[in-house]
Design a protein around this nucleic acid. Structure first.
Lengths: 212, 212
DNA sequence: AGTTCAATGTGAACACTGTTCAGATTTTCT
DNA sequence: AGAAAATCTGAACAGTGTTCACATTGAACT
């Protein structure tokens, strides 16, 4: 069965798989994606450099697992943000939640969209992606006065892609500090300032104003 | 003076600087950003592995030069797309041009927004970025019925950021194949299909409809 | 002209990286 | 118990970016 009393300093770690995933996630949070290293992950888990490749078949295998975790967290936040309020409020809250996730976890976020580092066919990743996607889709359905479990029609999909693109692009530009020049005139906390005030305004004028 | 008859197989290459930049650009076009290597760039230019670092001080120095080239090309395309037509048409054309640039040069595009690989303070990069930015700004000014050389007010900047975010996010999602699931129902050439039909529709309903 | 001098490029080293693979170690199954 | 499967190691390999003493060259200055 599962080793519940593991991590006793044995030759066998017990649940090295999870330990490696979390070590990689921690490393991503500390040093960012560009600071990530398979060997450093192994070092933190206290195992040999070859151990991760043994469990995950290589670097992409491990990173895919971390990315799936990221999509899980993102889906949770999107669901929470889309829980209450009018459809317009839910939409706005979800867009802000999307960007806030990127700002809170830049390493995870960058990883999640680096398809050159991931194994896209992995079911864990696909399922987690689907959950995040559906959280947004439900809000679009609500906006368009459709039942919660309906299929998105073509206009709905276009709207969803547009919303996603706007949030995704804003997140990327924020992380790449491309908005600093524009925003630094408004206040010191430019990241939060742009996210908490400017970005909701954009979403509002873009998607919400035309609904009323 | 400048060696015009260079590349005669001498110890001194003559204009190795430009040769390295173009070798790197070619490599990016062939293998993408993840396939880029400083040593391979040197190999293609027919020089030793240490030569690039000597000229550019390291990998980021060289890549920054390539990124500046990319911003130049992007700015040219944006300017061309925003040359004729109504403000709304110009906006739509520029957004499509933005995404088309990303699809045509994924290596360059990815590089241009990887601030961890670039030296942001380099003037060549800053100037080229500014040119691209201004091409979009002029269109926003036209939409808002302001003179061509006016300053963007706060609403204008919000609009510009929103437009940029939408195009940027759509470009990223397209390159990361995140839209395949949605678009593959519409046709085989899904990339071009989404870019030439779906994306203009999105921009249209987002930004243009509210102008008339 | 000849000689200095800075620029330009080399080649070998260094400290890394991801990956592979035979073998050591441990658990699990029969 | 013994056999088989799972787990982890340690050393290798090819490849990377970067550094540094040293070669080579073109230009500038007497």
């Amino acid at each position: 069965m599962k080793k519940t009393k593991t991590a006793e300093r044995g030759y066998h770690h017990g649940d090295l798989r999870d330990a490696l995933i979390h070590a990689a996630d921690d490393l991503l949070a500390e040093k960012g994606l560009e600071g990530f290293t398979l060997r450093e992950t192994a070092r933190r888990a206290g195992v040999s450099p070859a151990a991760p490749s043994h469990h995950f078949g290589g670097s992409p295998g491990l990173l895919t697992e971390v990315a799936a975790l990221g999509y899980q967290e993102l889906a949770n936040r999107l669901k929470a943000a889309g829980a209450n309020g009018s459809p317009a409020d839910r939409l706005k809250a979800q867009c802000v939640a999307y960007v806030r996730f990127a700002v809170d976890f830049p390493g995870r976020f960058h990883l999640m969209f680096r398809h050159d580092l991931l194994l896209k066919e992995k079911p864990a990743l696909e399922a987690a992606t689907e959950r995040a996607w559906e959280a947004l889709a439900k809000t679009v359905l609500a906006i368009r006065n459709r039942p919660d479990d309906a299929e998105l029609d073509q206009d709905g999909e276009a709207m969803l892609i547009g919303i996603w693109s706007t949030a995704h692009g804003f997140a990327h530009l924020t992380l790449d500090k491309k908005l600093a020049r524009v925003v630094d005139c408004c206040g010191e906390e430019h990241d939060d300032g742009a996210l908490e005030t400017l970005f909701p305004t954009i979403i509002d004028t873009l998607w919400v104003k035309k609904l009323g």
